[in-house]
Computed example of a mutant assay.
Amino acid sequence: MSEISGSSNYIDQLSWQEPQTEISDQPKDTMLSQEDFFQLLTQQLAYQDPFKPVENAEMVAQMSSFTTAEGIGQLNEQMTGLNSIMSSSQALQASSLVGQKVLVPTGYSHKTDTTGIDGVVSLSAPTNNVTVRIEDTTGQVVHSITMGAKEAGNARFEWDGTDASGNQLPQGNYVVKAYALQGDSSVELPISTYAKVDSVSISGANGVALNLQGIQGGFRLSDVLEVAKG
């Protein structure tokens, strides 16, 4: 009986033993690396049908596809880093504008107790009878500036903040519009105004934005046409 038992134990030892897999809580990297790709390619070549071997062109295409995918992934990482550097550079550049006056393409502007509003009328051609109108938030015209005939280019204007009688108007937001006579009709002209930069905002979606005094909504750094002393 002892011999039979010993033989049985020996046979059990020769039987197939299931490999013990170690369970780990650590997350595994599911990305296919270059080493993994070449291992798969080697296995593919080892088990291919000898009567129907893989064509060289097909093998080259597989290698090219993997190389291209890996290159795109690396390029995306580099572009992400470059975008971060550019955002930081723009933020640093924009921060130097805080407290300064910038010229932006808008007719909405803010008047304080001590300052008026100045800006530029853009003319694509020589124009007659150019007039700048200052309106309050209700659309009422509070002041008009007659500029007369102007050549093509940028025509500057200044408003000291007073009405037609010379009375100082209260601080607040005003709308500046420019008109000119072309033929028998009056046309509105593009206008830009100066505004003081109060602060700078950094947004992942919109990049760097300049917050201007009294004007809602930020302006991009690329919108700035000119920088002047505050």
Rank of each mutant, 00 (worst) to 15 (best):
I4S: 10
S7T: 05
S15K: 11
P19D: 05
D25V: 09
P27T: 03
L32F: 05
F37S: 08
L40K: 06
L41A: 11
A46L: 15
K52D: 11
A57D: 14
V60L: 13
Q62Y: 03
F66S: 02
F66K: 05
T67D: 09
Q74D: 08
M79F: 05
G81N: 11
L82M: 12
N83D: 14
S84C: 00
S89T: 09
A91F: 13
Q93P: 00
S96N: 10
L97G: 10
V98W: 02
V104C: 04
V104P: 03
P105E: 11
S109H: 04
S109I: 01
S109V: 01
T115F: 01
D118W: 08
V120F: 05
V120Y: 07
A125M: 02
N128A: 15
N128S: 15
N129D: 15
V130E: 09
R133H: 03
I134K: 12
E135N: 08
T138F: 07
T138N: 10
V142C: 03
H143G: 00
H143T: 00
I145G: 04
A152I: 04
N154F: 06
G161L: 08
D163Y: 01
S165Y: 08
G166Y: 02
P170Q: 11
Y179W: 00
Y179S: 04
S185N: 12
A195S: 15
A195K: 03
A209C: 00
L212A: 06
L212W: 03
R220H: 12
L225K: 14
L225Y: 01
A228V: 05
A228S: 12
